[in-house]
Amino acid sequence: MAMGYSKEIIEAANRAMEQRRRQSITKAEQRRRSFFSRYPRALEIERELSRTAAKAAKAVLTGSNARLELERLKESNQALQSELAALLKSAGVSEDYLEIRYACPLCKDEGYVDGKMCSCMKQLLRDEAYQRLNALSPLSLSSFDTFSLDYYGEAPLKAGGIPPKKRMEDIYRYCKNYAANFDPQLSPSLLMQGATGLGKTHLSLAIARAAIGKGFGVIYCSAPNIIGKLEKERFRSARGSADESDVYLLECDLLILDDLGTEFPTSFSSSTIYNMINSRLMASRPTIISTNLTMRELEKQYSQRLVSRIMGNHVRLEFLGSDVRQKKRLIR
């Protein structure tokens, strides 16, 4: 998979690239038809140029007086090209007006150059991933700039405790630095814990936005949604459909597993969550988990084995404060 993107994202980007190429060709054909209708001589010149190319090939193959014939054809070709350029200039259009103007001249809207992915294809993949992440997230795609610390109190929630604003300033700085230096092979997995409405999803999506901007493949999913999707795939008659989702959840550069613990608890959900988290840890691929549950509640819902894997391999960020979403609604 390119840069850890899912099959669906790659297919969507390929369709967009093909559509881009068709549009470039169609627009060129429209320009040519319009120009030739106004300047019929231009069409005659193009046909004559094609004939000189065929004559040049024939001269090389026959070998008789080839050099003289090629010189004559070259002079004729140059004269025709000069005449065509003069027609284009008189019409007030550029010299490449009759040519296909690809959105990307480097790869000619094919997405690859000499077998390597072109930068325009990488951008299409980023755009598609960005769009899908935005569509799946419960918020519009968040950024660090839109995260406000003003909603967090400066007084400790309990005697001797740290003020929520101070804690959240530290978490904000950590997440921003994490995003700036994100590396799928080096960045650690994160566990964001805290009550509802404290900004866990916002900051995880802000990290995702930065990672996508760097060209990395990011998948966002809430625990209930991904469990529901995998369960439906598992029981479909089409063999192998579940494996495909398992693969792209494992292979993406960054997986964001939101709202862990809100899915309906079953043996299937517990084993799937464990396998998802454990497989990515074994492959050294970072995962950002957000949950409203405490460690004790996680252990009760899942298992001590899962909690042990999380605790031993995730940087724990404990969010403090009161529901920011409620405060925002009250202000409005």
Results as ranks from 00 to 15, higher is better:
195 A>V: 13
12 A>C: 05
178 Y>N: 06
306 L>C: 06
92 G>P: 01
96 D>R: 05
158 K>Y: 15
152 Y>K: 01
128 E>L: 08
265 P>F: 09
37 S>N: 14
253 D>M: 08
33 R>S: 14
183 D>A: 04
275 N>W: 07
64 S>V: 15
281 L>E: 12
132 R>M: 06
108 K>P: 02
52 T>I: 14
7 K>E: 14
221 C>I: 00
77 N>A: 15
249 L>D: 01
187 S>Y: 07
122 K>A: 13
180 A>H: 14
260 L>E: 06
159 A>P: 00
75 E>W: 03
106 L>T: 14
19 Q>P: 03
3 M>G: 02
206 A>P: 06
76 S>I: 13
73 L>D: 07
83 E>G: 08
28 A>L: 06
311 M>P: 03
136 L>E: 08
279 S>M: 11
109 D>A: 13
250 L>V: 04
224 P>F: 04
165 K>A: 10
69 E>C: 00
286 P>N: 12
109 D>S: 13
258 D>C: 02
36 F>H: 09
293 L>H: 00
108 K>F: 04
70 L>N: 04
268 F>R: 00
268 F>S: 01
24 S>K: 09
162 I>N: 03
281 L>K: 09
256 I>E: 01
193 Q>H: 00
302 Y>W: 12
321 G>A: 11
287 T>R: 00
49 L>W: 10
288 I>G: 02
81 Q>C: 06
7 K>D: 11
58 K>L: 15
179 A>W: 05
305 R>A: 14
10 I>K: 03
141 L>S: 04
326 Q>L: 15
243 D>Q: 13
259 D>I: 00
35 F>M: 03
302 Y>P: 08
326 Q>V: 15
310 I>A: 03
225 N>T: 12
40 P>D: 11
213 G>H: 10
62 T>Y: 07
307 V>C: 12
84 L>G: 04
89 K>P: 07
205 L>R: 04
161 G>P: 02
321 G>P: 05
316 R>M: 14
167 R>S: 09
9 I>W: 01
308 S>A: 11
237 S>Q: 08
231 E>M: 13
115 G>K: 07
219 I>D: 06
246 D>E: 13
323 D>Q: 06
135 A>V: 08
131 Q>I: 10
213 G>C: 08
253 D>N: 15
316 R>G: 04
219 I>M: 12
192 M>N: 03
97 Y>C: 07
257 L>W: 02
252 C>E: 06
202 H>W: 13
215 G>C: 05
287 T>Y: 01
249 L>I: 04
219 I>H: 09
98 L>G: 05
143 S>C: 02
282 M>I: 09
126 R>E: 11
137 S>R: 07
54 A>E: 15
23 Q>N: 14
169 E>I: 01
233 E>Q: 14
279 S>K: 15
183 D>H: 07
242 A>P: 00
202 H>R: 05
148 S>C: 11
292 N>W: 08
150 D>H: 09
92 G>F: 03
275 N>A: 10
167 R>A: 09
113 V>F: 11
244 E>D: 05
2 A>D: 07
11 E>F: 05
273 I>Q: 00
324 V>L: 04
164 P>V: 11
247 V>H: 12
176 K>P: 07
244 E>K: 04
149 L>K: 11
202 H>M: 08
268 F>D: 01
118 C>D: 06
130 Y>L: 14
238 A>N: 09
117 M>E: 11
318 E>F: 13
150 D>N: 10
38 R>C: 07
215 G>L: 05
46 E>L: 10
